[in-house]
């Protein structure tokens, strides 16, 4: 780890000011991605601005057909929230499958979404539920948020404050984990929403994406068999020692069917 200044933010505005005022400032949420990066000397920020404990950014509320989750809410809190379990059980299931208990107790939804690891789980839910990412500056539609591998629509220094998830009729998330890291090799989030069926795929590509052909088929017939015969192209999918692009393409089909089945 290189040396850096540690600063604890008193408010969202204070955090933004501290990052802006630093030579090379970076936000820290749960630190579950940031700290390993620092320890491996892969990043050299001048200042680390800690927003993990900010009260404004915590908490879960359900109102007006939406579940709003503060960006610094930990995975463990989401996984065990009665509100989330009641309104969008799939989201609680997703959170409970992230990493291990230590990671879930520190890692946050905002940190995960801002980081946009191609193998992360939450992007599947943001896209799959058509959520809205709310920042200190604006609201960004989930569909426009994930722009590429580790890239998002966030501007420099822009802070995610909460994420609003519309409550679906039904939803489910199925994840095929990497045997080593247990991040998603393929994760599929399926939701029946007021605006139709959404199918979001994470882990398989450079960033999470929607499987529109599957959505169309499920809009016509919301059952696993509706997906028979839909094959996902392996073009452009990730490949590594754990899974070829073809295998990922195949798993998208399997996970999607299982998610539809799990919707009940």
């Amino acid at each position: 780890m290189y040396e850096f200044n540690y600063q604890k933010a008193g408010s969202v505005a204070d955090a933004a000011a501290k990052v802006a005022g630093a030579d090379d400032g970076t936000l820290m949420a749960g630190g579950m991605t940031l700290i390993p990066t620092l320890k491996q000397r892969l990043a050299m920020p001048s200042d680390v601005v800690d927003i993990g404990q900010l009260a404004d950014l915590q908490g879960i509320s359900v109102a007006g057909g939406k579940v709003s989750i503060g960006s610094m809410t930990t995975h463990d809190t989401v996984a065990n929230s009665a509100d989330v379990k009641g309104a969008i059980p799939a989201l609680a299931v997703l959170a409970s499958g992230i990493g291990d208990p230590m990671v879930r107790n520190r890692g946050t939804m905002g940190g995960s979404v801002a980081n946009n690891d191609p193998a992360a789980d939450y992007p599947g839910a943001v896209l799959g539920l058509g959520a809205t990412v709310v920042t200190d500056k604006r609201e960004i539609a989930g569909d426009a948020f994930f722009t590429g591998m580790f890239e998002t629509a966030l501007d420099e220094g822009e802070i995610i404050t909460r994420i609003d998830f519309p409550v679906p009729t039904k939803a489910a998330y199925t994840k095929f984990p990497n045997p080593a890291s247990r991040y998603a090799i393929v994760g599929v989030f399926v939701a029946q929403t007021a605006d139709g069926v959404r199918v979001a795929v994470t882990g398989a590509g450079g960033t999470a994406f929607r499987a529109t052909e599957m959505e169309a088929a499920l809009n016509a017939n919301f059952s696993p068999s509706a997906l028979d015969g839909i094959s996902v192209s392996s073009d452009g999918l990730n490949k590594d020692i754990h899974a070829s692009a073809e295998y990922r393409a195949h798993l998208i089909g399997v996970m999607a069917k299982r998610a539809v089945a799990a919707c009940g």
Binding site: A180, S181, Y183, D240, H242
Partner: peptide, 11 residues
Amino acid sequence: LVTGSYMDYAM
């Protein structure tokens, strides 16, 4: 070494 960490080496 492709499996240089627990991200890729499965225990």
